[in-house]
């Protein structure tokens, strides 16, 4: 599988007339693991949505490039077909859309061909086992009635199934107990290893980083990335909290 380079250049994003992302620069390559940390409201989820072209978010300046080409004019599904994946923090519950039917539709659409149902189910069951998901998910509507942990697992199952080149994981650790966190982290690691997937892992907390070691860590405050570094940055966040980075933001202003 050929690699991918995702470049975010001086990105500014508005939602409902308010600027949320205020000039973000970031480059993620396949097989790299980036962790983006920041307090609530710092713009992490907005960044993820903007990369995927959510209609509620307006890019006012800057660019998003994949392998050197701007994707701003591309539709959401076209961005996905390039090999980008977004794990939703709170995936929407869709009544009536069967979970497995949806997964099959997505897989067939991504691969541009019909997939043998038996092969598909064998593959799904393998991933469900890896994620400790019960078979009852097979007949459930998409995300309906899923607990917080089940929703995270459902999203990671899609990561495993769709084999993206770069995945944006928006708080895959929130709401998980210790065991579930370990399971999810293990599944993410497997996806990365099998497919050389690059990760942009968004989180508040350091605990998932003990399971998935990052190559790069970025701290985002007030719509900007205020510090870049390696795993040592996680320790700094742990010890000093995000307050310590507010000063950096002020200095940048």
């Amino acid at each position: 599988m050929s690699g991918m380079i995702l470049e975010i250049n001086n990105l500014h994003v508005e939602a409902e007339g308010k600027e949320i992302i205020k000039g973000v620069n970031l480059t993620v390559k396949s097989s790299e693991t980036h962790v983006l940390m920041g307090p609530n409201g710092s713009g992490k989820t907005t960044l993820s949505n903007a990369i995927f072209g959510h209609p509620k978010y307006k890019i006012t300046s800057g660019d998003i490039l994949v392998n050197g080409k701007s994707i701003l004019q591309m539709k959401t599904y076209e961005r996905a077909k390039l090999g980008l994946f977004m794990q939703f923090q709170n995936p929407v519950e869709i009544e009536g859309v069967n979970f497995i039917h949806f997964l099959r539709t997505a897989k067939e659409s991504m691969e541009g061909r019909n997939i043998d149902f038996k092969d598909f189910m064998n593959c799904i069951k393998k991933y469900m086992k890896l994620l400790n998901m019960s078979d009852e998910f097979i007949n459930r509507p998409l995300n309906m009635g899923f607990s917080g942990g089940e929703k995270k697992k459902s999203e990671i199952l899609q990561l495993l199934l769709l084999k993206p080149k770069i995945a944006l994981l928006d708080e895959p650790d929130s709401g998980l107990d210790v065991d579930a966190l370990k399971t999810v982290a293990m599944a993410v690691s497997q996806a990365v290893k099998e497919n050389n997937t690059g990760l942009l892992l968004i989180t508040h907390y350091s605990r998932i980083v003990s399971h998935i070691e990052p190559d790069f860590v970025h701290v985002m405050v007030g719509g900007k990335i205020v510090e870049n570094g390696g795993p040592e940055l996680v320790k700094k966040v742990e010890e000093k909290g995000y307050e310590a980075f507010n000063n950096i933001e002020d200095e940048q202003k």
Partner: peptide
């Protein structure tokens, strides 16, 4: 819109 966005984010055309 959110449902549409979710499904299209998985590579399914609009």
């Amino acid at each position: 819109d959110d449902e549409l966005f979710y499904i299209t984010s998985r590579g399914v055309p609009y």
